[in-house]
Every structure is written in structure tokens, then in C-alpha cells.
Design a protein around this nucleic acid. Structure first.
Lengths: 181, 181
DNA sequence: AAGGCATATGCAACTATTTGCATATAAGAC
DNA sequence: GTCTTATATGCAAATAGTTGCATATGCCTT
């Protein structure tokens, strides 16, 4: 059987190295996994709840004045085992569901100019993502050999982002060339 | 507001040019939109049901001997209008949720060989997809200029697939080079 | 003084997708 | 003769993800 439930295990991965509150996890998620896995705060909080109920993480309350209590979660042995079990099972090939391509397929029903406008909006977003990725790559490359070591695998995930965005922009050039004819 | 409900409108797009039964739509879906939108037969049948309830398509029964009746759906004016309205609204940028990258991020917890094995399995699938896309491209390129015309936009969606798969395989080379060290 | 952003949590309703089951026939492969 | 594939439809339950709302404070800006 091929495993799903990647979000749960993505959270476990983050907790494996360092404990944290839901809010911490949310920020770490966006900074580290957010390029290839998107999750809202609602999703993270509700997954933390079920992970806790299932005994894969436990929780200590840190009272704070003025603000709600911080719930700090940390890994249990069961959680660690569950993560390793998940890592052993094959994952599914990434599923593509791209609404822009649905629209392009039906593009004969709208005018080229409108399509160009929408492409331009998407292009801005993809360019911005590529810039972010390249900046992170610069940071990584600036590290000494020894300091690079623990980030070798995360760096490979970053490379996926870079190559993916470059491919998108290359495609956008082709589309543009066609739409401008 | 940015529009969702792409599946509904993907189905409407297919029905716009040609009527068909759920089963027809399923096959057309896989052949034409399946590269950038994945939908199971259950999803298609249930979407057809709601589209029908909402009056965006209507339905005539074709009795058949031995087999269940074929329900042939066709577009209504309301459906056509809804499709055009959807096409006018911007769509969201494709959301990435790639489990393989989650696993790679946590890759220090498993051994390199296992990661290599899984990469190899994914590579086979991506290579096969690229081959399929390239074969379709050959077919398109073999058409006369006049016959190409109606497929220009679908061809651009195919180009997205080709560039996307090439980028994936390029990345796989980088990953392989690292894992073999 | 008012508005926005960051901190810090979460529920509820809805939409989307997956997984498993269910039925029934006909054609072709082994 | 059985097994798989294709035809042809669909329900039900579970998991996954989105959208909108709700609360409460402190800090910084205009």
C-alpha cells in the first residue's frame, strides 16, 4: 500500500528535530516545507490535535500573560516510530491539478488578450518564487563545507523548486510567443 | 474572488464541443485533460449529477440491451454561460503538495539506498509520461498547418507537460549524483 | 485615535478527493 | 474454463483542504 497522510508526517518531521507550538510549526512549515507542501494554520492546528489524540506527540502548556497559553508539542517514541514507518513506505507520484491549464485548454472561448493578462499575473508569482529560491540557494552556497552537510537534502528540495520554476517560466515564454502572434 | 471548481468547468469544456455519457467524458478526460487534471470516475459521475441538478447540463437516456442505460449529457445555455463566466475569473496558481519532497526533506532518517530505490521508481513513471507527451507532440507536428489550428492551445498544455517532465528528470539526475556519492 | 500586522489559538461548514464497494455484460487472452 | 479488460453506472465513508468566522493582546505606523 502506498502511503498518504503526508501532512501528519511533515509535521512529525519538523518536531523530530525541535519541539514547538502550533504557531512555531506554522512558521517553520512556511519557511522550510512551504515550497513543496502548502498547509493553512487551520490544517496544522487540527492535525496537531489528532496527532496528540493518537499519542504520536505530547503537549505541555506554557501559560503566558495577555495571550492564550502556548501549547508546546514534542515527539513521543510512538511518533518517532510512526515517522520511520511512513518513510519506509513508497509515496505517490505528485498529482497535478492545474486550473490554468484547464483554462488554456478552453482558451478558444476567450480572447487572447485576456489569456495574456492572466499569464502575466501568474508569471509575476512564479518569478517571485524563483527569486526567493535563488536567494536561499545563495545562502546555502555561502556556507562552509561542514555547515552545508546537514542541509544537503533540504537543498535538493530547493533545487526541485528552482528547476520547476525555471521550467514554468520557459513555458510561459512559449505561450507568450504564441499569444502575441 | 478567485475561482475554484475547476473540475466542473473542465467537464463543461469537454461537453462544449461534443455531448457524451459519463463514460465518454471519463475517457476524453484521461486523453485530453488527464495530463494536468486528474479525476476518478467517481468524481466525474458525481460532478455530472450536480451539474445536471444545477441545470448546467441536461441528459437524455439511451436504452441499451444487456448494459445499463447510457446517460448522454449535453450543454445547456446556462452551462455555456457558467463556463464563460468561469473563464473570465482568474484561477489560482497551481498548488504544490509533493510527498516525495517531504520524504527527501526527512531523508537523513533513512538510508541513501532506500531513497535511491524510491527515486528510481518515480523516475520510471516520469520517463514514461515524457515519452507519452513526446509521442503526442510528434502526432501534432505531423499535421498540416490548417489541421494544427484547432489544437494550438491544447498543444501548449502539452508543452507544459513536456517541459515539466524534463525538469523533473533533470532534477532526478542531480539527486542521483548526490545519492551515489 | 484608528488601522494594520504579528502573536496565538481554534470551530464549523463546505468543497474536493480517495478508497472501497457494488452490479452486469461481452470480448478476447491464456 | 477462468481471468482480465472494456463497457457503463453509481453509493458511502473517510480523508484532505478551503473559506469564513471568532477571540484577545501588543506594537508600530499613519
Amino acid at each position: 500500500m502506498i502511503s498518504a497522510m503526508s501532512l501528519k508526517h511533515a509535521i512529525l518531521t519538523l518536531l523530530e528535530t525541535e519541539e514547538g507550538s502550533g504557531y512555531d510549526l506554522l512558521k517553520r512549515f512556511k519557511a522550510r516545507l512551504g515550497f513543496f507542501w502548502n498547509a493553512s494554520h487551520q490544517q496544522i492546528y487540527s492535525q496537531l490535535k489528532t496527532l496528540h489524540q493518537d499519542g504520536l506527540i505530547d503537549c505541555t502548556l506554557e501559560p503566558q500573560q495577555g495571550k492564550p497559553d502556548r501549547k508546546v508539542y514534542h515527539m513521543t517514541q510512538a511518533g518517532h516510530d510512526a515517522l520511520l514507518a511512513w518513510l519506509e513506505k513508497p509515496v505517490k507520484v505528485d498529482k497535478v491539478n492545474d486550473a490554468l491549464l484547464v483554462k488554456m485548454y478552453a482558451g478558444h472561448l476567450i480572447d487572447k488578450q485576456q489569456m495574456q493578462l492572466e499569464m502575466a499575473e501568474h508569471k509575476v508569482i512564479h518569478q517571485r518564487m524563483l527569486e526567493t529560491f535563488l536567494a536561499l540557494e545563495q545562502e546555502y552556497q555561502a556556507l562552509s563545507q561542514a555547515k552545508k552537510k546537514p542541509f544537503e537534502l533540504p537543498y535538493l528540495t530547493l533545487r526541485r523548486g528552482i528547476l520547476g520554476e525555471k521550467a514554468w517560466l520557459e513555458w510561459a515564454e512559449e505561450v507568450n510567443a504564441f499569444l502575441q502572434k
